[in-house]
Design a binder for these strands. Structure first.
Lengths: 187, 187
DNA sequence: CGGTAGGGATAGGGTTCT
DNA sequence: TAGAACCCTATCCCTACC
């Protein structure tokens, strides 16, 4: 606590961007030592520069999509399960177009253009990183956000969840104080 | 998502308080990993601990002053040091009522009904266990949380900090990249 | 040691639920 | 309106690797 967070000012951010343009990314100490920037960045360390640049990059990547998501979230106060589509044609789930984004966030799932549903479910649970496991709704939402899905995705996912937890790599967790059942990866 | 709010039990709260006294504030993951507390807190995340500690601190800090302060805070966008209480009557700081808790959890501070301010300051720094020392604000907060204080406590503490660090057992630490000064116990 | 990359933790503002 | 629980993410810290 001895240190309140030191928020980046617009000037500092501009200096960092200019520094990267001049010296390239990964040259944090060089940027700091450049007299052109050192006065503006004198309260930052090379590691601070690296972290801030990472943060700038991430928000730039996600910026547009995030706003759409937030708007959606506000429009739907209670996004109740509304799966009235009984279509039963085969599943074909493919990753969303902008793969650089996904690659940033996933550690192990790669850019295959077609992935099996079970793998997608495991990826969802892994990346959601919920300490007590993820429930079906969370898993649905993750998949919807990260893959192009057919209208009956939820039904298929529910079937696979049941299968994976009865004789596979998933474990059901029923919380003491909650109603929903969560799923985690066994081990 | 599919999860009603999980209210904190008294046991969990006690475990959290004990954990903070043992490891210091801001050591949420450490507290969670400590076998002394992990079983009691196993349904909480490190972020849950942080949030709960914030709630505890806020409600403990302000009994009656709360509303006035909040109003003030909203009125002043940049809340500069505003200690306009120039009262100079003597300090009388006493430990908070629930001494069983404090005594259970602190190793050396005992239940004296009156403790000298210098001792309280050392207790604060010791128990906060901040790796690079604690700044005045942290010390103030610790004292306000653990003792019943008069309105001009901060002024007196500031005076004693200056004294203790100029010719006593405290050492000032000035961080390379920051403005605030921290204090640690010399040795 | 000094430097960078990347994972992970924390702080503090916001939001939701009761 | 308020308080408690929870979410979001910029900032900061730790460790592995040169």
């Amino acid at each position: 606590m001895g240190a309140p967070k030191q928020k980046w000012t617009a000037e500092e951010e501009a200096a960092l961007k200019a520094g990267v343009l001049k010296h390239g990314t990964g040259k944090w100490r060089t940027i700091l030592s450049d007299p052109q920037f050192s006065s503006l960045l004198n309260s930052r360390s090379n590691v601070d520069l690296k972290d801030k640049w990472r943060n700038i990059s991430v928000t730039a990547l996600w910026g547009s999509r995030k706003k759409a998501k937030l708007a959606l979230k506000r429009a739907l106060p209670a996004p109740k399960q509304n799966d009235n589509n009984n279509n039963t044609r085969a599943l074909s789930i493919v990753p969303l177009a902008n793969d650089e984004e996904r690659t940033n966030l996933t550690t192990h799932a790669s850019k295959k253009s077609i992935t099996s549903l079970d793998k997608i479910i495991l990826e969802a649970i892994t990346n959601l990183k919920e300490p007590r496991g993820s429930d079906r709704t969370s898993i649905f939402m993750y998949i919807e956000e990260n893959f192009k899905t057919p209208p009956n995705m939820k039904r298929h996912v529910a079937v696979r969840l049941k299968h994976l937890s009865s004789n596979g790599p998933l474990v059901k967790i029923k919380h003491k104080y909650r109603f929903s059942t969560n799923f985690t990866i066994a081990g």
